[in-house]
């Protein structure tokens, strides 16, 4: 297990480096100029000074190395300082947003909780619903329930989230008036009433996101369960006279969860990226909204930081998926 873990870790680092290079190169090679949005009245030498101040004056590889240093060394130091009250990062240049001149990571820190609450809750609910759905679909394969679940999963893949979100807002917020249509980011849960308000405003975005998750994960769960139910050990368990519930739960479910666990881990960070759209519809002021507004304002340091944070999340969750898979199924460690 140790060797397997070490090998996986060894692959994760180059991946991250390569991604950072892709992100940097994309912004570097693009013919678009980050200063293109500035008014024409600014004179050439002021423009040059501004380029200097934004750190655009130097060669690409120097800027890349410095960016990487800031991302991998300075920003974690700041985090450590904030946690333990030390002063490792004093004087070190931080990643600054061009839009607000504030440290990018502080912006991210403000926005991340909003995203985490909505997206995280939606993911957890989606997975919890998906597992029994997939198990029952597989157990009663081809039956009415299975066909209905298959149809529902296909439909929820085909309905884009901004459409289902719009329909839900129209139905529940505008026509029926049961739920608020816009997410109030400033709401602080202090007492019972504000908790109810928070739940009410989270209901629609969480519903939209969790339905997508359920649709995907339940398909994988069904396939894995079908696979498990066709194995000899299921026949053996039945032949021994094990009760059907035990065959299904102890023999079928436990084995079929192995691939599903890694799918769940791999899917977790992708939903952050997917949440960009959902945040936009409901006005959740999270990391996705920050990305969209920075893209519109050509705030390149913020865009790069968000993309890299998402990339780190994706790689970390992939690593976690590999490790849990190797832990649950020792056979694949020796590939």
């Amino acid at each position: 297990m140790l060797r397997y873990t070490a090998r996986r870790l060894f692959f994760a680092l180059p991946t991250l480096l390569a991604i950072s290079l892709v992100v940097f190169a994309l912004l570097e090679l693009a013919p678009g100029d980050p200063m293109a949005q500035l008014p024409q009245t600014i004179s050439a030498d002021v423009r040059a000074q501004m380029r200097e101040a934004l750190g655009l004056g130097e060669a690409a590889h120097i800027r890349y190395t410095r960016w990487l240093y800031q991302l991998a060394v300075v920003e974690p130091m700041v985090g450590i300082d904030a946690l333990f009250g030390t002063a490792f990062s004093e004087g070190a240049p931080r990643l600054l947003s061009w839009q607000t001149r504030a440290p990018v990571m502080a912006l991210l820190g403000e926005r991340l909780p909003q995203t985490l609450i909505v997206v995280g809750l939606a993911y957890v609910i989606g997975v919890i619903v998906a597992i029994p759905l997939g198990v029952w679909s597989a157990y009663r394969r081809g039956g009415a329930f299975d066909r209905a679940a298959t149809g529902a999963a296909m439909l929820s893949y085909a309905v884009p989230p901004f459409f289902s979100g719009a329909v839900l807002i129209w139905l529940f917020a505008i026509t029926l008036g049961w739920l608020p249509s816009v997410y109030d980011t400033g709401l602080i849960v202090r007492d019972w009433d504000s908790l109810v308000a928070q739940i009410r405003q989270m209901a629609l975005p969480v519903l939209v996101l969790s339905v997508q998750t359920t649709a995907q994960i339940s398909r994988y769960m069904r396939a894995a369960m079908l696979d498990a139910l066709g194995q000899d050990y299921i026949t053996a368990a039945r032949a021994r006279g094990a009760p059907e519930g035990r065959v299904l739960m102890a023999h079928g479910l436990r084995n079929s969860l192995i691939p599903v666990v890694s799918i769940v881990a791999v899917g977790a960070p992708q939903i952050f990226a997917g949440a960009i759209v959902t945040e936009q519809i409901f006005g959740v002021n999270g990391i996705g909204a920050l990305l969209v507004s920075s893209v519109q304002a050509t705030d390149i340091p913020t865009i790069m930081a968000i993309t890299m944070v998402l990339a780190v999340l994706i790689v970390a969750f992939n690593l976690m998926a590999d490790l849990t898979y190797g832990w649950l199924d020792p056979r694949i460690r020796y590939d």
């Binding site: 990226a273 998402l310 790689v315």
Partner: peptide
């Protein structure tokens, strides 16, 4: 597969 695709699409 490890790239955050929607953000990259937006940037592109």
């Amino acid at each position: 597969l490890a790239l955050p695709l929607l953000p990259l699409l937006l940037i592109a």
